[in-house]
């Protein structure tokens, strides 16, 4: 099958699993572009950092839209900053767009979420 361009949009802090899901598609020979929206960044575990690096190795790319990506990412882990309008233009070329999980929450999470 032809390789598809697939954007995985992550708007909710709980659903950063969309990065893993994107990697799963990259392994299936597709171009995976997970997009972290408005600063809903994942906790940068070794596993998460490896997944992001692996997506780049598989000719995909992880984007940060709306907020600049952290500057202290682990070595080999890259996120490309992109504006909403640039994202929209890029996604016109997408074969598949996956708004992943749930929308952004209205309020900041309470401390209990950190446990």
């Amino acid at each position: 099958m032809e390789s598809l361009k697939i954007y995985v949009l992550i708007a909710n802090r709980v659903y950063n699993d969309g990065i893993r899901s994107g990697l799963g598609l990259a392994v299936e020979n597709h171009y995976a572009y997970p997009v972290i929206m408005n600063g809903e960044f994942p906790r940068m575990s070794d596993y998460m950092a490896e997944n992001i690096a692996w997506i780049a190795d598989m000719e995909g790319e992880v984007f940060s839209c709306g907020v600049d990506a952290p500057t202290d990412l682990p070595e080999g882990t890259e996120m490309t900053n992109i504006t909403l309008e640039e994202l929209g233009e890029k996604m016109r070329e997408a074969d598949v767009i996956i708004p992943y999980g749930l929308p952004k929450q209205s309020h900041e999470p309470p401390a209990a979420c950190g446990e």
């Binding site: 799963g24 598609l25 299936e28 992943y100």
Partner: peptide
């Protein structure tokens, strides 16, 4: 299964929704 099943959906299905 694994995420490969998602890949199979993209390959096998004419229409697709999330």
């Amino acid at each position: 299964r694994t995420q490969a099943f998602h890949g199979a959906i993209l390959e096998e299905c004419a229409k697709y929704i999330v």
